[in-house]
Design a protein around this nucleic acid. Sequence first.
DNA 1: TCAACATTTCAAGAAGTGTAGAAATAATAT
DNA 2: ATATTATTTCTACACTTCTTGAAATGTTGA
Lengths: 110, 110
Amino acid sequence: MDEPAALAAFAALSQETRLRIVRVLVEAGPDGLAAGAIGEAVGAAGSSRLSFHLGHLENAGLVTSRREGRFIVYTAAYAALGGLIDFLTRDCCQGHPEICGPLAAPRTCT
Amino acid sequence: MDEPAALAAFAALSQETRLRIVRVLVEAGPDGLAAGAIGEAVGAAGSSRLSFHLGHLENAGLVTSRREGRFIVYTAAYAALGGLIDFLTRDCCQGHPEICGPLAAPRTCT
DNA sequence: TCAACATTTCAAGAAGTGTAGAAATAATAT
DNA sequence: ATATTATTTCTACACTTCTTGAAATGTTGA
């Protein structure tokens, strides 16, 4: 992930509704979730607002979409999220690995 | 780091000048850098623009400041950056550790 | 105390972002 | 064909953010 992509990702995640969408999609797993279900989960059902935010996230590369019958199913882009984590980690250790200490330790899933 | 703090951090990092400031400060290490030096490094010297962005970053908890004689010295808040990385990592693995795979691997400094 | 330096605060305008409702598109079922 | 369901696109407006220049604040040295 390069700087422009990271900027876009940060901008996408800096909005409550969008951050919620990403979390919901991450929980949903690789199968993804239809727009309607996402809307219900984040409290923006059937609205143009949802489309707006989903579009923003897709633009930033944090989610992908596919049509499935009547539904449009969104999925978290795990690779992009990982790339963002790497970007931050790199930034934080830049030239001074000793500073970050615990940051360089493995992060495990709880 | 909780959700509101993460939102503020993402918002702070979603701006080119501010992202540059953070990178410069991380490189500078724990001694930090005076506002003037930061301004030169990021191409916003002697401007109120710089203050605006530094204030934004400080508000988000990503940098701290202290007066040193005539200078005001800013330092990267490494703990906050680490907290943000943890937040993202947690989000990404939420309920589905097997999904993230490589994300759960140790991140090392290069 | 006065002058110079480093940085911030203030005020105003331009640009960008988020929200809401109505109309448009796409797929399915009758 | 028509109606129904799912979602997006369009338009307009309120709100926030970024930038700029001028004035104010705090610190040091002569």
